[in-house]
Simulated scan of single mutants.
Amino acid sequence: MTIINGERINLKFASIDHMRTVYDLLVAEDIKDFIFKDNYPAPTWKEFQDDEVGYFNGCATKDGNYLLIEYRGEVAGSISYANGYEKRKYSELDIWLSSKHLGLGLGTEAILLLREFVHNEYGIDEFIIRPWKKNINAVKAYHKCGFHEDTTFDISQYYSDEDLEEYGDGDYGVEETLNLVMRY
């Protein structure tokens, strides 16, 4: 199993055996309100399995993978990357932490570690992250990592036509999804 070592955390590439752990972190009652809303509810376990199974390989892949964020011997959260090559070369990141691990800088360290890994491993220089505008603390952390709003951002320049149809509006709709970009 591949591990990326940081100063305080380790990122471990998640295998299919970790899928339920990642899902449980995603839908935990104490963080669900930061990630989901009525119009965009949490996925069911079945939906998560159907949509995400290809990202639990236990190793780095050119397309992407989920990773566990380990801190002091426990799983503190999950981070993932999904690389796109259809229209331009980019990587989309996603992250969530358990509530007891929020505000410690672990998310910032995880993003910086994964961003550097993806850049070095796959030569990707452009990263996007698409949080809910109302998740103010997450947005602040993304800014610390070098992400910023780009007034010329157009998701159709990134996603394939199929992905654009399904994911183009973002998880929170066009009005509430914040599109952040980081370029090397």
Rank of each mutant, 00 (worst) to 15 (best):
D125L: 09
L113H: 03
P41K: 10
E74K: 12
N10C: 13
F34M: 07
L113K: 01
F153T: 01
N5D: 12
M1A: 14
E162D: 15
D63L: 05
L104A: 02
K133S: 11
Y142W: 12
K100A: 09
S91W: 02
N83P: 13
V22G: 00
G173S: 03
I69K: 00
N120T: 11
I9T: 04
T177V: 05
K12R: 13
Y66I: 07
E7W: 04
K144Y: 07
W96Q: 07
C145T: 10
T2C: 09
S160A: 09
L114Y: 01
F36M: 05
E126K: 13
D169F: 02
K134G: 15
D33T: 10
Q157V: 05
G58F: 06
T61A: 07
S99D: 11
I111P: 03
S156I: 03
I35M: 08
V27G: 01
G6C: 10
L164N: 04
K140G: 11
F147Q: 07
Y81Q: 03
T44P: 03
L164F: 14
K89W: 06
G123T: 02
E121V: 04
N65C: 13
Y40K: 06
V22C: 08
Y40I: 01
I4W: 03
T21R: 11
E92S: 12
L114I: 13
W132F: 15
N39G: 15
Y40M: 02
K140D: 14
E109H: 04
T152N: 14
K46N: 10
F34V: 09
E109W: 03
G6N: 04
F127W: 09
Y142G: 03
R20K: 15
E86A: 14
D163I: 00
E126Y: 09
T152S: 15
F36T: 04
